[in-house]
């Protein structure tokens, strides 16, 4: 790095501007700047560069709507929390695991429903009746849903 003067290098000046020097060194540099025009110019140059960068950064920051940014962060957090809670709920809850297994077993047994439990409904479904007699009744008993067809042979 090019030396601005015999006493301080450019890095020292840069650290001075950024307030990164220990207090005693900072005061020493500040005293030195009063008498050293080379270092003073360098300080001005660095400060102007720094202010340009800061202004640009400020403008970029100003373009961000803080309210919207806050909302976005809150939404993101709530989404993450929700998905995390759902995940935890599904993975940690033993009852839910058992319920899931039971649901799968039940759904897989549905095709065998007839074989296992028999079809539901009346014992017989009457599709068609034809008789010479006018009076025909179709009855289903309450208890066993037994189907009875009654025709009056008179």
């Amino acid at each position: 790095m090019k030396k601005p003067c015999d006493k301080y290098i450019a890095e020292d000046i840069s650290r001075f501007i950024d307030n990164e020097l220990p207090r005693d060194q900072y005061h020493a540099v500040a005293q030195h700047l009063i008498h050293c025009p080379v270092c003073s110019r360098l300080v001005e140059r660095y400060r102007s560069i720094s202010s340009v960068i800061n202004d640009h950064a400020d403008q970029a920051v100003l373009r961000i709507d803080p309210v919207k940014l806050k909302q976005k962060i809150v939404q993101q957090n709530s989404k993450e929390t929700f998905s995390r809670n759902i995940f935890r709920f599904f993975t940690k809850n033993i009852y839910l695991k058992l319920a899931s297994i039971a649901a799968i077993v039940i759904f897989s047994l549905l095709p065998f429903q007839g074989a296992l439990f028999g079809p539901t409904g009346p014992s017989a479904i009457v599709k068609y009746v034809d008789t010479d007699f006018a009076s025909v009744m179709i009855i289903e008993t309450q208890k066993e849903q037994h189907t009875i067809i009654w025709f009056s042979e008179t």
């Binding site: 007839g114 028999g118 079809p119 409904g121 009346p122 014992s123 017989a124 479904i125 009457v126 599709k127 068609y128 009746v129 034809d130 008789t131 010479d132 007699f133 037994h146 189907t147 009875i148 067809i149 009654w150 025709f151 009056s152 042979e153």
Partner: peptide
């Protein structure tokens, strides 16, 4: 004198009377 078509549950029964 009487005819019908039914769908009878397997292992079940229907009663016709009259």
């Amino acid at each position: 004198i009487f005819q019908t078509r039914v769908l009878l549950k397997n292992n079940s029964s229907i009663t016709i009377g009259g």
